[in-house]
């Protein structure tokens, strides 16, 4: 049998460590499985909670905007527009905030055992994705209730939207996770930043309703906008806006690379400072 040889040296250079992540792939599963299991054991409402929150918000926004301040959402009915926005937004914000806290949360384990550290924020994102799937099922049911028309041709966009939001959340989450270990007071700014991001996302209003092209392009830097543009494509039947998608894609890739790079650069010292 071939011997595993491990080299230990001071940190230098940069690598993704994909091979090692693959070796430890089962740990992704176990951490995610634990988080889901614990979450649903601890709360009485369990899965219902992941569903009720966006539904309640949907009702509030629909009430507010359909009566007082009608917004043109094209072929998509407003409640469906908001609900689709909310489940994608929740996926992003849950994934980012949980991944951001994850390293501090796992400090005890980090100090006692080695495994590729990216697994920790990674499994936080997967846990948020599980909640998203629950929300998605409800969303599809609501599409039927509201007799929302859909176009199968947009299915590929729909999937691309989910992939973009996952990648962006993973990138931002790992960046935040590393930052939180290094600077312990940064976490207090996270809720404010997320709030800001929420209002710059086309969750409750469509980006098209913004008149100024420069502002629209600026807001497109927020990856949630590209994700929603794609996610809603099968509902509206319209072609997603190229500008929004391309700017969002570029910023997603930047966030992802910056997040992973910063994380990998600092992770060697997590056990010393966590």
């Amino acid at each position: 049998m071939e011997k595993t040889v491990t080299q230990i040296h001071p940190p230098k250079g940069f690598s993704l460590g994909l091979k090692e992540l693959w070796q430890y792939r089962e740990l992704f599963y176990f951490f995610t499985w634990r988080d889901i299991k614990v979450k649903y054991k601890q709360t009485v409402l369990g899965i219902l909670w992941a569903i009720l929150q966006p539904l309640a918000l949907m009702a509030i926004f629909t009430f507010l905007f359909s009566k007082t301040w009608p917004i043109d959402t094209g072929n998509i009915r407003y409640p469906i527009f908001v609900l689709s926005g909310l489940i994608i937004w929740n996926l992003f914000s849950n994934a980012v905030s949980h991944a951001g806290e994850s390293m501090i949360h796992h400090a005890a384990i980090i100090k006692k055992i080695y495994f590729p550290r990216l697994i920790i924020p990674g499994s936080s994102v997967l846990t948020a994705f599980f909640d998203f799937i629950m929300g998605l099922i409800v969303f599809i049911i609501f599409c039927f209730i509201y007799k929302q028309g859909s176009h199968v041709s947009g299915a590929i966009f729909f999937l691309a939207g989910i992939v973009i939001i996952l990648l962006a959340a993973f990138g931002a989450g790992t960046f935040l996770a590393a930052l939180n270990v290094k600077y312990r007071d940064f976490r207090y700014t996270v809720p404010v930043l997320l709030q800001l991001l929420f209002f710059s996302s086309q969750v409750i209003y469509p980006l098209h309703s913004i008149g100024q092209p420069w502002l629209r392009n600026l807001l497109s830097l927020n990856p949630v906008n590209a994700a929603l543009e794609l996610f809603r494509a099968p509902l509206s039947g319209a072609q997603p806006d190229n500008n929004i998608v391309l700017i969002g894609l570029a910023s997603t890739i930047t966030i992802l690379m910056a997040g992973i790079y910063f994380f990998r650069k600092t992770e060697a010292y997590f056990a010393d400072i966590a």
Binding site: T4, V5, T6, Q7, Y114, A268, Y269, A271
Partner: peptide
Amino acid sequence: ISRITPPTTGHATIRG
């Protein structure tokens, strides 16, 4: 040796 924290200098090789 268990790779929880990196060394500042030198290196180690673990076979197995």
